[in-house]
Design a protein around this nucleic acid. Structure first.
Lengths: 232, 232
DNA sequence: ACCTGAACACCGTTCAAGT
DNA sequence: ACCTGAACACCGTTCAAGT
């Protein structure tokens, strides 16, 4: 008598989870936290789920969409309240944008993919809605606020993407060092303006630059009408 | 008698060029112009040069460095003069930044890699020097100018990177459409601020947004002192 | 409808061996 | 010193075949 499929292994492992978009994205997030976004590939993720890569394509269109879903899942961690920032819209906005930036700082690779592929997930929409709301309290015109939200988020995202330098990423650190070295090496004769701005050009902590960058964007938005005539 | 290596094919092809960093980068630029940056891989480039991928590693450390070299080569096309922009530093700066943006618009994939890996090539340094020079004529403090140059170039680069949507890139176009659709679909009840800013949120031509974005950054830089006390 | 193995068409990088 | 073939360790995506 030929043995049927052995039910023996049923309790040996935590039971192969039924595939679904949700468990795929959740597993992808876990994989990214433990090994970094570069390991979140269709093949590796399938391995983690005990199946073949082809199976994932039922729930996810391609790798880019998968990474976008991971990003949106992470954006769930952004603190939209801006609770302890008082009543000032500007300080509340600063709190929200800082929270967004910190989430991306923890995963600079995701920030990069956010720059490349426009996010459109639910958590991102919530963030956009909140930033619009706070920005509109500045009194700037509707057009300024509408166009401004992109600038605010773009600046935060780009800053986070650049800041991959520190955390162990050797290639990014090399880039940064190479850039700083190149600026320092620039001679007074060939690059006079670089030499003239030299201490400040590579100075300032990440925090100081971050704070200043936020103020630059917000001041710029509120001071720059969208059409020729002054705002409102 | 065994035939020696046949010299017959000597004139059949344009003579295998001697390998060097210069011919590698030049070939890479040509390959990118004809087939896009995604085809500029070590293996494909080696094939183009009639050799093996391993040979390239004598002159180029890795793929990222290769792409950085391609970017810097392209930055040679940026018009730093800002010739027909008159005497106003702001209009001259606008001309230079617009030229930079246009170069990247033609190759959005390169803009993406510029966001990810800090450029430090010779042409990039020239651009930084020029932008510093023009920005310093605004009368803003040295620190504002030094920190501002990053913001100006970061904004232009990020804008170009996003704008890959149009040109044939189907994935990018899908992203953009998905993002616009998501914004339009956002209900008044769940995302009131999005609904309230709706026509403007997805409106405006690339040119209008580009121009406004430049003014936002420049106005922000000149209006935002670096430390607590007012600039200068 | 969902899942799978196998295949196709690629990658980057290293290294021993040659010239 | 430079160049090479071959190898190692991967990729994304599709598709015919199964359940």
């Amino acid at each position: 008598m030929v043995a049927r499929k052995e039910p023996v292994s049923r309790r040996e492992r935590p039971a192969k989870p039924a595939l679904s978009r949700r468990v795929i994205v959740e597993t992808a997030v876990a994989l990214m936290r433990s090994e970094g976004l570069e390991k979140v590939t269709m093949r590796r993720l399938a391995q983690e789920l005990d199946t073949g890569a082809a199976s994932l394509y039922v729930y996810v269109a391609n790798t880019a969409e998968l990474h976008a879903a991971v990003l949106d899942a992470l954006l769930g961690e952004v603190d939209l309240a801006g609770a302890d920032a008082g009543d000032d819209w500007r300080e509340q906005l600063r709190a929200v944008v800082t929270s967004y930036t910190l989430v991306l700082f923890a995963h600079p690779q995701l920030a990069r993919s956010a720059l490349v592929a426009r996010p459109s997930g639910e958590n991102y929409l919530r963030l956009v809605d909140r930033v619009l709301d706070l920005l509109s309290r500045s009194g700037a015109s509707r057009a300024q606020v509408a166009w401004g939200v992109d600038k605010v988020l773009q600046d935060a995202t780009a800053t986070a993407a650049e800041h991959s330098a520190q955390d162990r990423d050797p290639a990014a650190a090399d880039d940064w060092n190479a850039a700083v070295a190149a600026l320092r090496a620039a001679g007074e004769d060939t690059h006079p303006a670089i030499a003239a701005h030299m201490p400040e050009l590579v100075g300032g902590s990440a925090q100081e630059r971050l704070r200043w960058g936020f103020d630059v964007i917000v001041n710029g938005i509120t001071h720059t009408p969208v059409s020729g005539p002054p705002a409102d």
